[in-house]
Design a binder for these strands. Structure first.
Length: 382
RNA sequence: UCCGCGUUAGCUCAACGGUAGAGCAUUCGGCUGUUAACCGAAGGGUUGUAAGUUCGAAUCUUACACGCGGAG
């Protein structure tokens, strides 16, 4: 994997780098919008690449395996061609579905048995199978099959689970080396560090995985309900055991302020459903705080959603209009809101990168973070 | 003019003798590797009006008002 670490912040563990896949280069820190089923919900590929300039998005192995299925994906020539996306794709393994579909799966020593959330049919996911599915998808970065543990998680279970993830990591690696890309472009593989909220397990997990020499490393199993401080502390602790020269990915995180705090703790890559899901639920992130656009307060607010944002939504429409669209349940509201939230996230990490290079990242982060996490109406009262 | 049906929350309707509920709407909140255009909470009704029967009436009776349909 081509990852160049260009600079490290003097006042924090923040890093600036460039990551290159067969589908292009991306500057880190980077946020990857989630496109579980071969679409970042409510945003076209054109907008995503040309306007928002997202260099990479996420797909999901479990969901794409169920629909459209590997046969269709292979016939299409892989997910890139199927969905007409020419930038990079990272695919999650289904490890998160172990957590989110907990009632529909059974853990076994050699894999996970899922009962489809669609028709109840049974599907057995092994580390090898998950690699093969991701070969069919053709993602640039494949994630290993892991077990994302819930919070809270008893120590006994966390010990066993972390060991299982380590054991599977070996099988993932073997399957990766045994198999080949199907579409003529190179694919990379990231390992996932688990260990719940236990530092000793996080350290052990990191050591186990680093031994296997993956192309990059992720921290999984966080942002599952633990206190935010705990998430920060575990992230800070774990990045010390992750190789300097390889990309570090904090899975499933998070709110804008979570991104900044995690960048300060040495993370290079993020993904989260929050900008897209919350957009569809009328919860918008702005430079001045959170805007819950359904609120009656905005019914005659003809100012732009975020005056400091250059996205299509903010450049062309008012808060009153956005509220109207949500109020009337119009599809365009979902699109405009999604475009803004994803733009906001990508602009945020780009700005962070700039600040790291300029040497004033921590100062900047501390200044804006208190604004970001609060509703804009509260910010205005002060 | 007569006959029938109806009138309950902003709207559409439940409850048919034991002092009213839902969906939608309204107001607000929550979403962290998507089973999510989702989920949750709150506010909102002297049951068209007046009288009667009854221990007790949205519910039964009568009159009136309004609406819809039919007959003439």
């Amino acid at each position: 994997m081509k990852f160049t670490l260009e600079q490290t912040d003097k006042n924090s563990k923040a890093r600036v780098g460039v990551l290159e896949t067969a589908h292009g280069k991306m500057e880190t820190p980077i946020f990857m919008p989630v496109g579980t089923q071969g679409t970042v919900k409510a945003i076209t590929q054109r907008t995503l690449s040309e306007d928002i300039k997202a260099p990479i998005i996420l797909g999901n192995t479990y969901h794409l395996y169920l629909r459209p299925g590997t046969e269709i994906l292979e016939k299409a020539g892989g997910l890139h061609k199927f969905m007409n996306w020419n930038n990079s794709i990272l695919t999650d393994s289904g490890g998160f579905q172990v957590y989110s579909l907990t009632d529909l799966r059974k853990m076994k020593s050699d894999g996970v048995e899922f009962r489809s959330h669609l028709d109840g049919s049974k599907h057995f996911f092994t580390p090898e199978k998950v690699i093969n599915i991701q070969r069919s998808i053709g993602s640039d970065i494949m994630m290993v099959l892991d077990e994302c543990t819930p919070y809270p998680c008893e120590l006994d279970y966390a010990v066993k689970s972390t060991q299982l993830t380590s054991d599977w990591a070996i099988l993932n690696k073997e399957a990766f080396e045994k198999s080949k890309p199907l579409y003529g472009h190179e694919q990379y593989q990231f390992g996932i560090i688990q260990g719940s909220t236990y530092k000793e397990l996080r350290e052990k997990s990191a050591r186990d995985l680093v031994k296997l020499d993956f192309d990059g490393y992720a921290i999984g199993g966080l942002a599952v309900g633990e206190p935010t401080e705990s998430m920060y502390e575990l992230t800070d602790f774990t990045t010390d055991f992750m190789p300097e020269e390889k990309p570090r990915y904090l899975m499933g995180v998070g709110r804008p302020e979570n991104l900044l705090e995690s960048i300060a703790r040495g993370i290079d890559m993020f993904d989260c459903v929050m900008p897209t899901r919350n957009a569809r639920n009328a919860y918008l992130f702005t430079s001045q705080g959170v805007v819950t656009i359904r609120n009656a307060h905005y019914k005659d607010d003809f100012s732009p959603l975020d005056p400091n944002c250059d996205c299509y939504t903010c450049q062309n429409f008012t808060r009153a209009y956005l509220r109207h669209l949500f109020n009337t349940n119009e599809i365009l509201g979902l699109e405009l809101a999604s475009i803004h939230n994803v733009s906001f996230y990508l602009n945020l990490v780009r700005e962070a990168r700039k600040k790291i290079i300029e040497g004033n990242f921590v100062e900047w982060k501390n200044k804006i973070i208190s604004k970001l996490e609060v509703n804009i109406l509260q910010n205005m009262e002060e």
